[in-house]
Simulated scan of single mutants.
Amino acid sequence: MNDFQEIADRVEIEALRGEFTDAAMMRDRARLAALFTPDGVLRMPNVPVEFVGRGEIRTGGERLQAQWDFFVQNSHPGTIRLDGDTATGRAYMQEIARMLDGRSGLNFAVYHDSYRRTPEGWKFAERVYEVRYVDTTPLRGSASGPDVQSHGFGEVRDAGPASEAAGTDGSVTGAPDDFGAPVSAERLDRVVAALRANGFTAELLDDAAAARARVKELIPEGASVFTGASETLGLSGIAQDLEEGDRYQAIRRNVLGMDRATEFDRIRRLVATPDVFVASVAAVTETGSLVIASGSGSQLPASAGGAAKAIWVVGAQKVVPDLSTALRRVEEHALPLENARAQAVYGQPSAVNRLLVLNAEPQSGRGTVLLLREAIGF
């Protein structure tokens, strides 16, 4: 190997490690998973978790990040040892974090890495996370929100009325522009009340596991069920429950085996008028509206009224004050994450080609919103 190639490899591996920290900080788990080889492994014995393959790394990371109030990771250069198309190395981390249950702390850790050269460039074959020091003294600071003004090294919080985004301990959760963080209990209660006033059946559940059990209760055995493409359904296991086995007539599974050229009209009718449609939404407003974004539009007819029953499972981070903020959440938060996922899975970008806003449900009992207290999905 010539000197130039060795320098280029070291630069690319260092960039890979930097991309990992950026993806973690931006809560972009699809991008983070794509930094690994398809069979790559992320091990964190101190947590303890072990994720094997890009799918587990993405979904496992979603579950972990749903517990954060805030998380900051600073990475420092370490060692890189090249060996042809493979390499090993270490990277050093300083991290501070606070969980939604109030636990917080600071730690110093080491990532023990194995890298592999691929047609897409250098990727992680394995990352093993070793904590060297932990300080669980409660952090006195808070995650910054739009009401925080920076002045040099300090922060001056607006002296006006307390923001709804602030928790009882002074931490900020669900600030208006933090589209990935769950909102406060007060705001969740307000959304439920608004949805019910608009004709939806709305239930507030603790987590994805509770939603998974509730969906099974709501759908009768033998019903034809169409599941919209949704990270929420995939991460929660709801999609697996509905699309595998013989308890339901799984429309998505059936149409995947049909010829789109010769059976398109039948496919169109099947997905538009199922007995039950199950999906998520891009945003839900505190005034009780659901906002749904789609690239193809195939799931919109069922949501709008084609399905006899519709169930939407919605994470607490999708709550926004109003419609204009909902549209901003679609463009600034959901689309970039979905675009990265589509690129990793399908090799092509996504797009918001169609938008549906449901302001009310005129048919009593048709539409059910299962709103969770935790964040899940995009």
Rank of each mutant, 00 (worst) to 15 (best):
R268I: 07
A23Y: 06
E203V: 00
A166Q: 14
S303C: 14
G315F: 03
A223N: 00
F378V: 12
P161R: 11
A340R: 11
S296P: 08
E332A: 06
N46L: 08
G89Y: 00
F108Q: 14
V320D: 04
D177A: 04
L35Y: 12
Q73W: 15
R157F: 06
S104E: 08
E14V: 12
R212V: 01
V110P: 07
G245F: 06
G84C: 05
D147H: 09
G222A: 09
R157K: 11
I219H: 08
A30N: 10
S296M: 10
D28R: 09
E203P: 02
D135R: 11
L242R: 04
R269S: 06
A162W: 08
L204K: 02
F200M: 02
V357E: 09
L371H: 01
S142T: 15
D39G: 07
R354S: 13
F51H: 14
T325N: 02
I376E: 03
N198I: 02
E50I: 12
A23K: 01
V278L: 11
H76M: 13
R116P: 10
N46A: 14
S289V: 05
L139I: 13
P146D: 01
Y129R: 11
R54W: 00
I80S: 05
S142Y: 10
V41A: 02
G61A: 05
A340P: 04
E332Q: 09
G288S: 13
A223L: 01
G222S: 10
Q73G: 04
R260H: 14
A279T: 14
D322N: 11
L204P: 10
F179P: 05
V191C: 06
A307E: 05
R98M: 11
Q363V: 15
G306Y: 08
E231M: 14
N107D: 05
A91G: 13
S171I: 03
A159P: 09
R29G: 00
G40Y: 07
A326K: 07
V278W: 07
Q67G: 02
G84L: 13
I376S: 03
Y346G: 07
S364E: 15
I251H: 04
D83A: 15
